[in-house]
């Protein structure tokens, strides 16, 4: 349990580092969301409860990074963490390609939920919206695959 916590913490630090250093690589890469990629990896491994707790925490962190209000990504990540945890408990995933797919899909769902909340609260959405979402989802999917590879190193007991 303790090892899992430390491994998760290391992954979190990695996500923060990636998020921080992304602008150094390219300003355009800031549309990617490493926290969501990390949530995908952790929630698929940990189950519903772990997923929604990680989702609530990472969502708040993501809001602090990107948005003036805390709660948009928090709500979306909580829901996504629960759903991913539920999926993780039902299916057996092999390889990193499914993670890339779940990362990509999570980004789309997250963007949709945040946009919905924006509209419900009467806030204006920035344009253009669709193209950055598509590009960001692809980059996040790739990141999720990368985090999965790192997680396999950090969670030795899960090795087949």
């Amino acid at each position: 349990m303790r090892k899992r916590f430390i491994a998760s913490l290391l992954l979190l630090l990695m996500a923060v580092a990636v998020q921080t250093l992304l602008p150094l690589v390219s300003g355009g890469l800031t549309i990617a969301n490493p926290f969501l990629a990390l949530l995908t990896v952790l929630a698929l491994r940990g189950g519903k409860l772990s997923g929604l707790l990680w989702g609530a925490f990472l969502g708040a962190l993501c809001d602090a990074y990107f948005l003036p209000y805390v709660g948009f990504h928090g709500t979306a990540f909580t829901l996504l963490g629960y759903l991913l945890g539920w999926i993780g408990s039902k299916v057996m995933l092999q390889g990193v390609i499914p993670l890339a797919f779940f990362g990509w899909a999570s980004y789309i769902v997250d963007a949709g939920l945040v946009a919905l909340l924006y509209l419900l609260l009467g806030l204006p959405l920035a344009a253009p919206f669709l193209v950055p979402v598509l590009l960001g989802s692809l980059a996040t999917g790739l990141m999720a695959a990368g985090f999965e590879l790192a997680a396999r190193k950090l969670f030795p007991e899960e090795r087949p």
């Binding site: 519903k48 409860l49 929604l52 707790l53 609530a56 969502g59 209000y69 805390v70 709660g71 948009f72 928090g74 709500t75 909580t78 829901l79 629960y82 909340l117 609260l121």
Partner: peptide, 13 residues
Amino acid sequence: LLVLLMAGYLVLL
């Protein structure tokens, strides 16, 4: 917990 957290976030928002 999911409902509580989401409701909490929505209220906060």
